[in-house]
Nucleic acid binder design. Sequence first.
DNA 1: AATGAATGAGAATTCATTCAT
DNA 2: AATGAATGAATTCTCATTCAT
Lengths: 217, 217, 217, 217
Amino acid sequence: MSRHSTLRRAPQQKRGQQRVDRILDAAAQVFADVGYEAATTNAIAAQAQTSIGSLYQFFPNKDAIVSALVARYVDQLRTVYDSVLEDQAEELSLEITIGRLVDGLIDFHLTHTGFMAIFTRSPVSEQAKATAEELAYENHARGEQLLGMFVPNLPDKKRHLYALIASHIVKGLMPLSDIQDEHFRAAVANEIKVALLAYLESIRERFNEDTTSDQQE
Amino acid sequence: MSRHSTLRRAPQQKRGQQRVDRILDAAAQVFADVGYEAATTNAIAAQAQTSIGSLYQFFPNKDAIVSALVARYVDQLRTVYDSVLEDQAEELSLEITIGRLVDGLIDFHLTHTGFMAIFTRSPVSEQAKATAEELAYENHARGEQLLGMFVPNLPDKKRHLYALIASHIVKGLMPLSDIQDEHFRAAVANEIKVALLAYLESIRERFNEDTTSDQQE
Amino acid sequence: MSRHSTLRRAPQQKRGQQRVDRILDAAAQVFADVGYEAATTNAIAAQAQTSIGSLYQFFPNKDAIVSALVARYVDQLRTVYDSVLEDQAEELSLEITIGRLVDGLIDFHLTHTGFMAIFTRSPVSEQAKATAEELAYENHARGEQLLGMFVPNLPDKKRHLYALIASHIVKGLMPLSDIQDEHFRAAVANEIKVALLAYLESIRERFNEDTTSDQQE
Amino acid sequence: MSRHSTLRRAPQQKRGQQRVDRILDAAAQVFADVGYEAATTNAIAAQAQTSIGSLYQFFPNKDAIVSALVARYVDQLRTVYDSVLEDQAEELSLEITIGRLVDGLIDFHLTHTGFMAIFTRSPVSEQAKATAEELAYENHARGEQLLGMFVPNLPDKKRHLYALIASHIVKGLMPLSDIQDEHFRAAVANEIKVALLAYLESIRERFNEDTTSDQQE
DNA sequence: AATGAATGAGAATTCATTCAT
DNA sequence: AATGAATGAATTCTCATTCAT
């Protein structure tokens, strides 16, 4: 897969793949604990219970670890979006779909500590910028796809803009799901759905007005 | 409470205050240029056209620079919110108020280039966490205040929740105002207003329903 | 001077220049002790009785230290060649000139431990290659100059070739001057002169034959 | 004495010896490509198309690889000198003999690309020093042998000194045979012969004078 | 007060060598 | 025997902070 392009050496054995996974898990944990910049490769190796040498046998540098981690996140995010999209076969309402999406994303966020540390970092190196782009793109593209299902015939440019806005709303709100208090977290989850739904409904309304008035002309 | 608490020495003379301001300007610039983590104290001193020794005469460490900068941002943000709040004497519509607020915040963001670099960093030290908290609090508190004006009688808890959501929507969307293309930026600005307005209207609706149904009982 | 171009920061104060010199002395010593590749920047700093940080304040990397050292060597070598060339005002014999040159070079070599370690290393980086080139060029160019004085009218191409050979003979023989035994060292010095003289005489002879035969034609 | 003393295990089977040879070939190639210091044992193993583990089954450490390679070089150099010495049965002139020797050495140098990288390195460990010594000794000893044939009755001490000088002249000049331009390389080869011959003739002359004057006394 | 040289802990990365499979 | 994953000491270089002048 594409993620392997960032690996120094594609692990041929099961053990190697496990080690790669363990390193990525460790990296995610360390990123979650201290943030991306403060995370050291030694800390990641220690967390992965491996040696620094082994880490560098698989990853040529720190950026590559993040790239691989992001590739994994993208794969897993895709699963979240896919499961929501599949449900669309049943022609569910926008409200229910948004509900499932937000629940899925919150669950993803809660089970993937470290994701936000990477998602919100300001990338420095060129490679880091490309990686950040990749991650942002996944959310944006999937948002566009979903939007296209609920508001068909939307001009490309508008769909692009609206999806950009929606994905950034989600990006801004996701960190809130970290909240410890369970009741409050549920309330927040609900508000995220409300906010997203409100924005999407506003898109629908405006689009209907536009097309209606077009017909009138 | 006063921002000067983070200063090693309160500059009693005008010259000292000017130097502090120049350092903060420099810090903001460097943060904007290379990001928070890549910014070095030496680079900040150089940008401020002072010596590293002088910098440390005013600030005990790097965190203190950020704290002071954030304190200044908080002051300046307050001005943005205040000007919007003052207009409320005229009892403007929610739509117009949101429009002014978003315009003000976008303008603030564009004229304070280092702001986002600090706002979105993952704080490491305890002091950094406190500083980040302070900044988040300002936005949240001011949001609550505004919300209270448009939906009076909202229970504290709900007002707190809604303002939290609203401030995070804004936080998520603000970085988009960086976009170079002027047309697209204007379109984005409009969508930010739409999204925020849509959410706030949903709050109003829900509140009216609640109170109406309350009355019916 | 040109050597400063490799410095990260031109030392403005006497103290700074002294420190640079001390670091270069230390580097020469360490190179002499363990060879170029085995020399570590920490060892150089320790030998210079300074901190690794100070070393890097003046030199951006290890290669730059060598470059500066070589620049100093080139300056000092120039002095050796100059003093020999100046004597030529007296129109000394080739034998005496070679004698003085070899004595000068042996003295230079004995008083500049570390020179050979750099002169004979195989450069790896591009910068190192350029530096090695510079050093080789100095010897070659000065050899050409001297040769031109003793065998005037030699075609450029030949002078270039002969000087190349002569400079490499010297390069090959110089390390022998390290020999501890004083008697043996003196004998070696004498043989170096003999060998160099023999080669240069052969050039003269061949050139005279050539020009003689040319005239005959 | 035997080169196998540096081997961890004398390969009893043909296959093992082939593997050892392949590793030495690989080492020579890598030394030629990147220089001695930059050569890694992993790169050597890769070039030899074997595993790093196998490499260490035959050689206890990196120095041992060089030692074995040098031992092979010494063997092969011996062949060059032997073929020249054998021709001496025909009582060829010094000029012709030098010509053959230099041609042989240049050919050796050109066909053994890794040789110079090892010959000119500054040895660090004790083992490396011993190995370097061994290589230098071979050239020196063979030089002495040849010198003895052309200037018989030379006192041991002088023969030793002269051979030392001659071997270092050759060492200094050999790297020049790397030159790409074929014409220039041929010219250089010729000059090497001229220089060496000139020195050896000077030895002869001095010896004849000495013995003549001895007789006169 | 101002300056900027000096410090050294700490970070990323390499590579000779070992050892489990 | 062969393999190549694993190890970690050692190396280069950075940068927050101190301190002599």
